[in-house]
Design a protein around this nucleic acid. Structure first.
Lengths: 213, 213
DNA sequence: CGCCGACTACCGGTAAACCGGTAGTCCCGT
DNA sequence: ACGGGACTACCGGTTTACCGGTAGTCGGCG
């Protein structure tokens, strides 16, 4: 019984390459490939995979948004997130959104099939690099609790898109919510962080690794 | 006679996946895989590939720097750059640094072997998405010779203060000039850099080291 | 159960960003 | 000498940021 996988990545070359890599694994079968969050969700209404493997950075839908939508469609469907960075806030947000595995791209190639098998079997998979970052956060204890004003997953999404230079209207369209709501999110973020300009928010996002400078 | 390729990407999963994808192509052979710019340069002192395929975003060495170093080692070695974004200044910079092909990751999977064959044969390869951006740039009067948009000293001052989160009015008071003049400076900066939001200007300033994130 | 935080959404308002011009001075390079 | 870029400054316009409220649902927590 092969593990049936749907792959998602907006970079089609990477998508084809990952598919090729998984094709070499005897017990894993790629039954669908999506190049956007919307396409992935549409695919899930027609197919019943054992697991979804998706890049967290896709235009039009962030990884957090995709994870929430997938959980709405099928809360029991395991999702393995593929990410380039190890920001702990983001990782925690993804797990809160229902993701069951988090794999950084800098991990070894053979970690991907292992992660897929683990998550498909109902386990939780966490890359070593991310585990270290999370442990550091826990070890610091007070750092994670007090020093960092905690933003909700939606707020992290909005902050990331703001740091990308997008307007509230654009962000609203991408997140499929009202511009007024995006406004409120931005204002709450500014209040929590005590930052009152897009420039400062952008630098904060860069410091937190939410976006590349 | 197979085309001998050295692959470089800091994301090892992607590296393995790309290698797997190329292994399916009969006339292309991956003879080396590097996970950092330094490892790639070291590899080039021992091996003689027909072409280097490298991601432009690697920690410890930017794509521009890697391209220059490779050109120092062997000016005739074709380099195909793999990138996620289509910023035209960056693309022009890469070509000025000696790169002979530029492929965006969102291109179709079969574009990679085609690009490799073209570049290995001495041709220049450019993804369609990037070609559009470059054509636009040429039409606007930007020639390949001046890839680096030069900012005047006053413009650099204004950019730094903008990245600090200050308003035009505040900047005007600090620089002892009219707010209208600050406006003009900001608009000229945005036109030159082709960036149209404070968030993007801020990230540019961080990249250029004008301010700390 | 009630409170609080997150998320959703709206109204109204002031300030600022953003874009299109025009225009003068200065200096530098062809 | 003439063009071009930098710096200075203004006019007018649309869009967005930013701040002050209010208000509903939902889930968690004491």
């Amino acid at each position: 019984m092969k593990i049936r996988v749907i792959l998602a990545d907006d970079h089609r070359i990477i998508l084809a390459a990952l598919s090729s890599l998984l094709a070499r694994t005897a017990d894993i079968e790629v039954i669908g490939e999506a190049t956007s969050g919307a396409e992935l969700l549409e695919m899930l209404t027609r197919m019943q995979p054992d697991i979804v493997v998706t890049d967290i950075a896709m235009p039009g839908m962030t990884g957090l948004e995709a994870a929430r939508r997938i959980a709405e469609i099928d809360p029991d469907l395991p999702v393995l997130a593929l990410s380039g960075h190890t920001d702990k806030h983001f990782v925690l947000g993804m797990f809160n959104a229902g993701v069951r595995g988090y794999l950084v791209k800098s991990a070894a190639g053979d970690e991907l099939p292992r992660a897929i098998r683990a998550v498909a079997a109902g386990d939780t998979y966490l890359s070593g690099e991310v585990a270290g970052a999370l442990a550091e956060g826990v070890r610091a204890g007070h750092t994670a609790e007090r020093a960092g004003p905690r933003l909700g997953p939606r707020e992290l999404q909005v902050l990331t898109l703001l740091a990308a230079g997008k307007s509230s209207k654009l962000i609203a369209m991408e997140l499929q919510i009202s511009p007024a709501t995006v406004e409120v999110h931005r204002r709450n973020i500014m209040r929590k962080l005590d930052l009152h300009s897009v420039a400062e928010l952008t630098k904060y996002a860069v410091r937190e690794g939410l976006t590349d400078p």
